[in-house]
Every structure is written in structure tokens, then in C-alpha cells.
Computed example of a mutant assay.
Amino acid sequence: MDDDVSRRVALEVTDGVATVRLDRPEKLNALDPAMFEALVAAGTALVDRDDVGAVVLTGAGRAFCAGLDLASFAAMADGSRVVVPREPLGAARALGQQAVHVWSLVPAPVIAAVHGFAFGGGLQVALGADIRLVAPDAQLSVMEVQWGLVPDMCGTQILPELVGRDVAKELALTGRRVSGSEAARLGLATREAADPLAEAQALAAGIAGHSRSATRATKRLLDLAGRVPLAEGLQAEQDEIGALIGSPEQVAVVRRRLA
């Protein structure tokens, strides 16, 4: 792995909880090509890990992620930015999309702990998580329009599902900043937390303590909701519950609870 990539994101696993930390604090964890690659690498590394029951996604220093770094904008302005074709990762073909979409491919639930700034692409990275805990004074913005761009890291597909189509348009067409408190009211965040990292870690530990098969099946089912025909979603429920009932893991859970 390229040295810049290996330094951009830290990955640690303790007691079934993986902590993925954007680790470029001197730049407010701004996104550059190496950061995108590191996020994809970290997410991909967790896809097949059976020892991970939940994931916490956070940023080092004063911000979760301040968005695209200024050097990338400069490359757009002078025409030196080159888009390199990539192999698809799930439904995503572009590198920026993969840095967000990869978290939906991780079978374990992913919890983003957001503090400081989550602007533009940084906010879209947080949107890739299953749950977002946000500091009340955090600042979030779908900022791309202010740079003459559109949210191109899965944001246009995720936002309407979270906040409704009209609110998504208002946020994306203005680029206005919202506090963590407002983000929670809008549905942009799951809820606010005075210490989002501590609460995310506690939540992740609780989830990791449940049956891995059950939590992963729950994530799969909820990710289907509204995206597949109802009959397909209902059949998926039956397929998942059929695989769980009577399995050694489920039997062990029942015995513990009845003991």
C-alpha cells in the first residue's frame, strides 16, 4: 500500500468493535486521492472479517472531515485533474462513490461519530454509515454547489431517503450549514450526542454483543426496504429468519436468555 494511503486512515479492532479513524488532523481530515483510497481499503478490509460486530467511523483532531482538500479544487481549475477508470465496487464505479458505498457493503453495522466539520464529501462519507451520532455544535453542509459541483459521492441517492426529497433539494441547492442539533431534527443525523465518539463506541459495543448473524441479517433487510418490491422484501425476511431459527448461534442466545 502507498505510504500516503496507509497514513490517511487508521483501523483498529478491539473486542469485536472496529474503529476506523480518518487520520489527517492537520488538514481537518480533508479528502485527497490517498484519503479516498484509504477509506476504500479500510472498508474493504472489514467486509470479510468475522471478528467484527460493529464499526465506528470517526475523524482525528478537530473535525470529522472538512471535505475535498484545496489542492483537488486547484487541479479542477487548471485542468490537471484526471479521472482514472476503476473496477466497480458493488454499485459504485468512481473512487469517491466507493469511499462512501463501501460502508454499505461491510456486513457489520457502521456508526459515524461526527464532530467539528462534516462538509461536502466529508458529510457524504458520514452518510455512508448506518447510524450517525453528531455533536450538537458540529457543522454539516452539502457544500458542493458552492464550488460549482454536485454531490457525487452517493449523496444525491442517500439524502432524499434520509430527509425527504424537498429538504434534500434545499440543502443541496443552497449549501447552507446546519448544526448537529438541526441535522438531528432534519434526519440528516440519527441523533445528537454530547460526546459522539464515546456514545458511538458504547453503541457499537452493545451491538457487537448481540448475535452477529442477527445484526448482519437486520442490516441486510433494512437496506432492502423501499429499494426492492414489497414481495421481494417480505421473502427476504422469511429467508433470513429461516436461516437464523435453530442455528447454533441462535440456540445459544436463547439458552443464555432463559438461564
Rank of each mutant, 00 (worst) to 15 (best):
R185E: 14
I245V: 15
E237L: 15
D130R: 09
T174K: 08
R49G: 03
L197I: 13
A77M: 12
E192G: 13
V55G: 03
D166G: 05
V102H: 01
G59E: 05
E37C: 00
L221E: 01
D51T: 04
A77V: 13
V84I: 10
V251S: 15
D48M: 00
R256L: 14
S211Q: 05
A194C: 05
G79M: 07
V251N: 13
K169V: 12
S80C: 09
A252Y: 05
G180D: 07
P109I: 11
V13Q: 04
E26Y: 00
E170F: 06
V102G: 03
T19H: 06
R216N: 08
L188R: 06
L222F: 15
A217V: 05
L171N: 09
A74C: 03
R220M: 07
V82F: 03
P85D: 09
A236D: 09
P85N: 03
A168K: 06
L123R: 03
L28H: 09
T215I: 13
V20I: 11
R256N: 12
V134R: 02
L133I: 05
V178M: 07
G206Y: 01
G246H: 11
D166M: 07
V13K: 07
E249V: 10
V102Q: 02
S213M: 11
P33M: 02
A60T: 10
Q235D: 15
P109C: 08
L22W: 02
T58G: 06
L173N: 14
V102C: 05
I131R: 15
P25R: 01
L95P: 00
I111M: 08
G246M: 06
A231D: 15
R212F: 01
R212T: 04
V100F: 01
R93H: 07
A183I: 03
A172P: 00
L127V: 03
F73M: 11
A168C: 08
T14E: 14
G116I: 02
A189H: 01
T218V: 09
H101S: 10
A74Y: 04
A205M: 01
G180N: 06
D15H: 12
G233Q: 14
A34C: 01
Q146H: 12
S6Q: 13
A112F: 06
H115Y: 01
R185D: 13
L173M: 13
P196T: 09
T190N: 11
D32M: 00
S80G: 08
P33T: 04
A74E: 12
Q235M: 13
